[in-house]
């Protein structure tokens, strides 16, 4: 049975970019969230939205939010000492393999991948491909470096406009990595078209792959149906799905539901 939402206090706020904040808070339930799990986050008086749970030090948890519409802006604007409600964590999590792992993320899709890194077996060799449009939009490069330092790893930062790191799309970098070496697993989270391409690439290479999918979520608990993707309920059957199951889904990479439930195309 689902626990009801409880109130937590923001302990600190970190600027990631001009539009992205990481808010840390003390909460043992969220600190125990598995990589890929999410919370329903209530900003009193403003809204409630799904958020991936970010890693934080010392038994704390965090959310990393990009200012977007009303609710994300409300969350972004919270300062230390202010309150938010959290319920969950909900959803399944990544099946973390041993060996050589390729992680491909973009934007706030990097959040569950940071948690994945923190939970990966100590000898896993991790290649992280991070995509952003421009240099000022790159974030988590330092966080990733710190998390990956104790293990064999490689970080590839890509910008669409070439202003930082490798020029071009994260999917191009992922394709190069996959053709260059034998990976044991691929994990992706970010814009759906990016995830679609990465799942295709991994399938073609015959590598186990999973992606964490986003849809509109109003309940997070399998009641409202707003998160449906074909036959799947992203909040309960996911958010993490294997490549084969995703590529067989007629909606994945193609269409989604708006808040009213109307169908829209990517």
């Amino acid at each position: 049975m689902h626990e009801t939402s409880h109130i937590v206090q923001v302990t600190s706020v970190r600027d990631e970019t001009a539009t992205v904040h990481t808010l840390e808070f003390d909460d043992s339930t969220m600190a125990a969230a598995l990589p890929g799990q999410f919370a329903m986050v209530w900003v009193p008086g403003i809204g409630e939205i799904p958020m991936s749970v970010m890693v934080a030090d010392g038994g704390r948890a965090a959310f990393t939010v990009r200012r977007h519409g009303e609710a994300t802006t409300g969350l972004y604007n919270l300062g230390p000492g202010e309150m938010m409600g959290v319920r969950g964590p909900y959803g399944n999590s990544f099946d973390i393999r041993a060996g050589r792992l390729l992680l491909v993320g973009g934007g706030t899709g990097l959040v569950p991948l940071m948690r994945l890194i923190s939970r990966a077996p100590p000898d896993a060799d991790i290649t992280l491909v991070m995509g952003a449009r421009t240099r000022p939009e790159v974030f988590f490069a330092d966080t990733a470096r710190a998390l990956l330092r104790p293990r064999p790893h490689c970080i590839v930062v890509c910008t669409d406009d070439g202003s930082y790191g490798r020029p071009g799309l994260a999917t191009d970098a992922a394709a190069d990595e996959l053709s260059g070496g034998a990976f044991d697993a691929v994990y992706a989270c970010g814009p759906e078209i990016m995830m679609y391409k990465v799942m295709r690439l991994a399938q073609d290479a015959g590598v186990f792959a999973q992606a964490s999918v986003e849809r509109i979520m109003k309940c997070g608990t399998g009641i409202c149906g707003s998160c449906c993707m074909g036959r799947e309920l992203v909040c309960g059957d996911g958010t993490v799905f294997e490549a084969g199951r995703l590529l067989a889904n007629p909606d994945f990479g193609v269409r989604y539901r708006t808040k009213s439930g109307e169908v829209a195309y990517y």
Binding site: S5, E48, R87, K218, I223, C224, S260
Partner: peptide, 11 residues
């Protein structure tokens, strides 16, 4: 529909 929260478990 309304902005969230719209569906909340009460225990």
């Amino acid at each position: 529909g309304y902005p969230g929260p719209t569906v909340v478990p009460l225990g």
